[in-house]
Design a protein around this nucleic acid. Structure first.
Lengths: 147, 147
DNA sequence: GCATATTAGTTACAATTGAAACTAAATTCA
DNA sequence: TGAATTTAGTTTCAATTGTAACTAATATGC
């Protein structure tokens, strides 16, 4: 029986994890730190920036973040005055979340930085590779859906 | 001035993060949980399984894990009797790490599971896409090297 | 040769995180 | 209707993690 020979440097889940963590870390240093905002908070802002009035649960569904993580991020953003909650009249369990003026300012400042970072990152790839990567990620996600 | 329009669903760092976390999570459930071994511990085992006698620091360099993470994983594995430390005669700061017989058994059991998971995951991609993904990851890592 | 700097690894501490249990509101169905 | 279930969101608790400070050993430079 041959040795299993699992070489981490060639093991895809590991390789993905390393490169992803490097990218997320750099990105977080780039903007989040500078604005005193963590990644979950930033993701909430990004969602509300594009789609005001979402409930916390809608953010959970869109962002693939944990319920608890979103709950805390929302509380933190509210405490910082970056968003407001408004109880839904029809269903009092829900709150509609909206960026405050200051929240919108933060979004307007960070979003271009994030997009700039992405653009810079993608200079490493050809247009074709970028498209490939997108398709590959979709396929991997599809595979993960089927567990 | 146009809206910044950062759509998370199309933002590469975010997409990478989601798919990677899904994969890592599934993998961890697959093997690590079942053997009572966390991801950092598993990575140390994988390194020592292929290359016995590494120092903790060598594992850090190869695995891109944090120093502290490795230190703790090594301590945990030693406590579980899965590896042994031997002080380096020439440089007493270093310890040579080697899997115990039981550690080798764990490696021999988990490695094929991990490789099988990877193989299954890659059925979602064509051979060509797999090769592309490998190249793309290398390119992104190269870009990150240049910060 | 001795003071200084560097390296290997650990410890202490604080922040982040998620699972599980919980509250409150809404829905189901008998 | 009203008891049982489900859903939105929060809180509690324990585990994981990284930063910074530390110890001990080696290497460097004057």
């Amino acid at each position: 029986m041959a040795k299993p020979s699992l070489h981490l440097e060639k093991f895809l889940p590991y390789r993905l994890s390393v490169v992803t963590n490097r990218i997320s870390g750099a990105l977080s240093r780039h903007y989040a730190d500078r604005f005193g905002i963590g990644i979950p908070e930033w993701r909430v802002i990004a969602n509300l920036g594009r789609t005001p009035g979402l409930t916390a649960n809608a953010v959970v569904e869109r962002s693939a973040m944990d319920k608890v993580t979103v709950s805390r991020a929302v509380a933190a953003l509210e405490a910082k005055g970056l968003l407001t909650r408004e109880r839904d009249a029809g269903d009092k369990r829900k709150s509609r979340l909206t960026l405050s003026t200051r929240g919108q300012t933060v979004y307007a400042e960070i979003a271009p930085l994030a997009l700039g970072f992405e653009r810079d990152l993608l200079t490493a790839l050809t247009a074709d590779e970028t498209a490939q990567l997108d398709r590959i990620i979709d396929k991997l996600n599809g595979k993960m859906d089927g567990l």
